[in-house]
Amino acid sequence: MTTFPFSAIVGQDEMRRALLIAAVDPSVGGVLVFGDRGTGKSTAIRGLAALLPKMKAVAGCPYSCDPGQPAESCPHCAKGGPRKSGLVPVPVVDLPLGATEDRVVGALDLERALAHGEKAFEPGLLARANRGFLYIDEVNLLDDHLVDLLLDVAASGVNTVEREGLSVRHPARFVLVGSGNPEEGELRPQLLDRFGLAVEVTTPTDLPTRIDVVRRRDAFERDPDGFCRGYERADRALQKQLTAARARLPGMDVPDATLEAAARLCLALGTDGLRGELTLMRTARALAAFEGADIVAIDHLKRIAPSALRHRLRRNPLDEAGSTARVTRAVEQVFSQ
């Protein structure tokens, strides 16, 4: 199935930027996309999957370990010895709402058990998502017992399976991407905290943009391949920019002034713990790397602050202004001094 090209998405800059930042630095910890229906949330994520540069992985490893540094907890690569490797697409794994626990965490391989009497582990979705993305549409409707499983794995990067006499630990480090509509229900605060960035999407209201969206979508449906060819070059440029940003990331300089500004901003907003500050720094750094800057400037901080912090405020449910406005206000106050 052809996917709608990422670079053909009209508007929704905040969402696109957040997804690209997560692709530059997976350690920022996931993206939550909340907002109106029909704003192309799923489209953007599938578009990103097609855009990501391929990665090197150990051949035959069910967790697609990096041949350079296989995960310690990988049962497949722990044996050592020479390993073959190849280029594979970055996994973007869907976790459908109807998934059962055994498929999410992995379970006894029923076929081999029944046919050959062998006790073998069949890796689940978390294994497949290692080093890639795990996407949950309507994340706020996910059953609580699945959320509990995710919370632990997303925090530790390791999936521990103890069931049916199996005892397996394997790497499961992934970028969690969730989307949903707040009208269907709120998200558990613990899960909210696992997302590095939270973006709000709204339906565009100005007519030219709306016409543009419908026109492109219509053109895509009529001739998907032809439409994609038109955006091939733009997608490739974006891909190059991603690769360059990843290479630049480790050497990025974060001046003290920026660090201090981040601390002041988090203080002004009263975000809980150090998590907010850390995410703010990391995302600002990834943004700077993506834009080809040499240092992480205050400006990067300012622009990414709403996405990095809006879901970390102590919630005041009666504040009509909403958390976005509060972050913007704090940014203005802190940086005007």
Binding site: T100, R103, D109
Partner: peptide, 25 residues
Amino acid sequence: PPGTAARLAAALDSGVVLVERDGLQ
């Protein structure tokens, strides 16, 4: 129920149904 509606919506959007159940994929 909202959960069922969300499952139907996902299938409507993608034209496929993803089975990740009972050890099947």
